[in-house]
Simulated scan of single mutants.
Amino acid sequence: MKKKKVLVCSAKTPFMYGGAEIHAENLRYNLEARGFDTELINLPFKWYPNERLITECLTWNMIDLTEANGEKIDLVIPLKFPSYFVRHENKVTWLMHQYRPIYDLYGTKYSDFDLNNGFHRKIRDQVIKIDEKALLESKKIFANSKNVSNRLYKYNKIQSEPLYHPPKNIGKYFTEKSRNYILSVGRLDPLKRVDIIIKALKFCDKNISAIIAGTGGMEKDLRKLAEKEGVSDRVKFTGFVTDEELIKLYAEALAVMFPPVDEDYGYITIESFLSKKPVLTASDSGGSLEFVVDNRNGFICDTAEEFGEKINFLYKNKRIAEDMGIEGYEAVKGISWDNVIDRLTESIRY
Rank of each mutant, 00 (worst) to 15 (best):
T66A: 11
T66Y: 13
E67K: 15
E67S: 15
E67N: 12
E67D: 14
A68V: 15
A68S: 06
G70K: 11
G70L: 07
E71H: 06
K72N: 14
D74V: 08
D74K: 05
D74L: 00
D74Y: 05
D74I: 06
L75T: 04
I77E: 01
I77L: 05
P78N: 01
P78S: 00
K80W: 11
K80F: 12
K80P: 02
F81R: 03
P82Y: 10
P82F: 08
S83P: 13
S83C: 12
Y84K: 00
Y84T: 00
F85V: 07
V86C: 01
R87F: 13
R87S: 05
R87W: 09
H88Y: 07
N90C: 13
K91C: 14
V92S: 02
V92M: 02
L95E: 03
L95S: 05
L95H: 03
M96I: 11
Q98S: 14
Q98P: 12
Q98M: 14
Y99P: 11
Y99M: 11
Y99E: 15
R100H: 09
P101K: 03
P101Y: 09
Y103F: 15
D104N: 07
L105C: 08
Y106S: 01
G107L: 05
T108C: 03
K109S: 14
Y110M: 07
Y110D: 08
S111D: 03
D112L: 09
F113V: 11
L115C: 14
L115W: 10
L115R: 15
L115S: 13
N116E: 12
N116Y: 12
N117S: 06
N117E: 09
N117I: 09
G118C: 10
G118R: 10
G118N: 13
G118P: 11
G118I: 13
F119G: 09
F119R: 10
H120N: 10
H120R: 05
H120T: 12
H120G: 13
R121A: 11
R121Q: 14
K122W: 14
R124P: 00
R124M: 12
R124I: 08
Q126I: 15
Q126G: 10
V127I: 15
V127Q: 02
V127R: 02
I128H: 07
I128M: 08
I128N: 07
I128D: 04
K129F: 14
I130P: 01
I130L: 10
E132C: 09
E132L: 04
K133S: 11
A134N: 04
A134Y: 00
A134V: 07
L136R: 09
E137R: 05
E137V: 02
E137T: 02
K139M: 10
K140R: 14
